[in-house]
Design a protein around this nucleic acid. Structure first.
Length: 420
RNA sequence: GGAGGGCUCGCAUAGUGGCCGAGUGCACCGGUCUUGAAAACCGGCAAGGGAAACCUUCGUGGGUUCAAAUCCCACGCCCUCCGCCA
């Protein structure tokens, strides 16, 4: 939810933000109108209600025929109070619904444009030169078969397209990555969490996933629950309706993630780059709004450290306005080099959601001036399938085996994944 | 799935139709006293909207009533017992 006061004071900023996202700017004016109507209805109702409260009190004190007379007018008043209340409820509902449609105000520092208009902030490491080493790299599907780490055929047989089994070394690799990521997170002061992934509409809506992103969410109609696409949902909602007194609070959530991948037909159909279910360790921070920007950099740095230690070339991009989620004011992605694609591909993503989610979820803190929504931020520490892709492809050797990056060896218990 | 008990301002509780937005204790914050602390005493202390008057909120949503924390209905959550499953 955006700040309605800020909207009233500067609607142009919100229109510009909507435009930069490639979304409807007209809903800004519409929201202003319904918000006016809402406030009018509230004033009208409160006026009548105050009158009724007064009158009611005098009824209790009165006696005899005076009481009869008072009762008479009180009854009439009760009817108009009821009507005004209904009108108020309707106006509030309309304003609330209109409010939910507007995405978070974009950080003016974010590059404006579509998916392709990102800015490269930094490129780290050099893509490995397989030509110089004298062999052509295999893609992760092939390597996965050779070392028996990934079984996509059987994944499709059992669960359909975009499903897979991690087998033997693949399964061990996931566990090692998760343990490594969690150990780093704990060292960094994050509280590790294993959150529910089955969540209520309020959590989904509060984190901004029921707008534009709704088609990518699994919905269990029978139970009116959703399968979350990221533990961000349950971590954000953890403190719903609370007033937090020590900030920042940092959690590292480990959970499965579910994505319908609607509208991505034909994209990344090979391998495990884009799948319906995967595990992820996600960082999540609640902090003061004024600390959010610095915290965003911190989350990015933790992501960077993680990828540095996997010895994989990557770049960091500043995601363009048109490619931001509804909740994000700004987003940085890490893209790892994928040799067989000759391209950098997204492996992590960190978003500054400013006070947008906290306003919807009613998560606040107190300072001298009053109670205000906190800021929330999230960032991927490790998303398993894409990280496995990056490791297998970047660390493959001529003989078909895969070298394990040093940092991961203690967690995996071996330094090479060999051909089965 | 069945039976019962509960849900009030951080915690514990009081409150069975108007004097209740709501008392008390603990915790917390400020002050007096003290070398300092404790104790004692005094004051403050739920949230939201509003410039204010005032309005809203006693799990949630409906209803009855001039008036609901209080009466009625539905739902949610927690606890106990039974059944079922592990």
């Amino acid at each position: 939810m955006i700040d309605l006061k800020a909207l009233r004071e500067n609607p142009e900023a919100f229109k510009a933000s909507q435009k930069a996202r490639g979304e409807d700017a007209g809903i800004v004016d519409k929201l202003l109108r319904v918000d006016d109507a809402r406030r009018e209805a509230i004033v009208e109702f409160e006026k009548l209600r105050a009158e009724q409260n007064l009158l009611s009190k005098s009824v209790g004190a009165a006696k005899g025929s005076e009481k009869e007379n008072l009762l008479e007018s009180a009854k009439k008043l009760a009817a108009s109070v009821k009507a005004a209340d209904a009108k108020r409820a309707e106006a509030e509902d309309a304003a609330h619904k209109a409010g939910l449609l507007i995405a978070n105000l974009i950080d003016p520092a974010a590059p404006v444009g579509g998916e392709a208009d990102f800015k490269v902030i930094e490129t780290v490491g050099k893509p490995r030169d397989f030509k110089a080493e004298g062999f052509a790299p295999k893609d992760h599907v092939e390597i996965g078969k050779v070392i028996k780490a990934i079984d996509i055929e059987r994944g499709a047989k059992v669960s359909g397209a975009r499903s897979y089994y991690l087998t033997g070394p693949g399964a061990l690799l996931e566990l090692a990555l998760v343990n490594y990521a969690i150990s780093l997170a704990v060292k960094g002061g994050f509280i590790p969490m294993i959150p529910p992934v089955l969540v209520k509409p309020v959590a989904m809506e509060g984190t901004g996933f029921l707008g534009q992103a709704a088609e990518n969410v699994y919905h269990l109609k029978e139970d009116e629950l959703y399968l979350a696409g990221t533990s961000e949902v349950a971590l954000a909602a953890f403190h719903m309706d609370e007033i937090l007194d020590q900030l920042p609070i940092r959690y590292a959530g480990y959970s499965p993630c579910f994505r319908r991948e609607a509208g991505s037909y034909g994209k990344d159909t090979r391998g495990i780059i884009r799948v319906h279910q995967f595990e992820k360790v996600e960082m999540f921070t609640f902090c003061k709004p004024e600390d959010a920007e610095a915290e965003h950099k911190r989350l990015l740095n933790w992501e960077r450290e993680f990828f540095d230690s996997l010895e994989i070339a990557y770049r960091v991009i500043d995601v363009a306005s048109g490619d931001l989620g509804a909740s994000a004011a700004r987003k940085f992605d890490i893209e790892a080099w994928i040799p067989t694609q000759g391209a950098y591909r997204e492996v992590t993503s960190t978003s500054n959601c400013t006070q947008f989610q906290a306003r919807r979820l009613n998560i606040r803190y107190k300072d001298k001036k009053g109670t205000k929504p906190v800021a929330t931020l999230n960032g991927t520490l490790v998303a398993i399938p894409r990280t496995i892709v990056a490791i297998l492809e970047n660390h493959q050797q001529k003989d078909g085996s895969v070298k394990v990056p040093k940092a991961l060896i203690p967690f995996l218990g071996m330094d090479t994944l060999v051909c089965a």
